[in-house]
């Protein structure tokens, strides 16, 4: 489903460019839950941003459903995201404070110009599935961290994407809530057959639900990637 080949990415630091991704390669099969592990600051989020077409890599290629997407930006990236069904759940939930939980989940459908009634019923269904049916009229400021994450996951899945990218979905949550969120991800992966990529530094928590993963660790030059280290 996803192929990453020799991906490199640098940022400009105060003392010259900093290499964040250094020749990263891996493959993700359709329908699997794949882990991208490693401590903070090794470029996991940068990798996820490249996969979600929010950043362009300096070199290397990304293929999603056999389509080369690594060189796309702006409108082209937007069309590919919509066509290939790419959804992202960000680390900070990134919910709209001006909308209720239901309004937040409806948003991707509104962007796709889905009729309001249909968007509403689909969003309600997803909120129920993520265990938030009774909280649909709450604003984000009245939801707990775990509930916000559930809304963010419901919002990412309401369009029935083919690929779901999760950036540190459990880092801000207590252990119990984190496990329940990961179980939810596993359940939704089974229901929707969605390919899931989880970026996390909490390896021991995510391991039970992932089929494979890569471990990213910093070395002198940048980031060294070892495949199948964890599982």
């Amino acid at each position: 489903m996803i192929t990453v080949e020799h991906l490199c990415k640098s940022y400009n630091g105060p003392h010259g460019p900093i290499k964040v991704l250094n020749d990263v390669s891996f493959q993700v099969q359709r329908g699997e839950i794949f882990g991208i592990y490693g401590p903070s600051g090794v470029g996991k989020t940068t990798l996820l941003r490249c996969l979600s077409l929010l950043e362009k890599p300096d070199s290397g290629d990304i293929f999603i459903a056999r389509e080369k997407v690594s060189s796309l930006a702006g409108k082209d990236a937007r069309h590919v995201r919509l066509r290939l069904g790419l959804s992202v759940v960000f680390q900070g939930y990134n919910l709209l404070n001006s909308r209720t939980a239901l309004g937040n989940v409806m948003l991707p459908l509104e962007i796709r110009r889905v009729p309001r009634a249909e968007a509403r019923s689909k969003a309600k269904e997803l909120l129920k599935l993520t265990g938030l049916g009774s909280r649909q009229d709450f604003y984000p400021s009245n939801l707990s961290g775990g509930e916000k994450q559930r809304v963010a996951i419901a919002r990412a899945l309401v369009t029935e994407p083919r690929v779901l990218l999760l950036d540190e979905p459990t880092s801000a949550l207590d252990r119990e809530t984190a496990i329940s969120i990961l179980q939810l991800v596993e359940k939704l992966n089974r229901i929707y057959s969605v390919t899931v990529l989880i970026v996390t530094h909490q390896i021991e928590l995510a391991r039970p639900i992932t089929s494979r993963g890569i471990f990213m660790s910093p070395n002198g030059k940048g980031v060294e990637v070892k495949e199948n280290v964890v599982n």
């Binding site: 077409l53 929010l54 995201r81 790419l86 992202v88 960000f90 990134n94 948003l107 962007i111 796709r112």
Partner: peptide
Amino acid sequence: VDRGTIEACISMGAS
């Protein structure tokens, strides 16, 4: 407006 919220909407395909 939070930059992350804007990016989240871009990632949903917002024009």
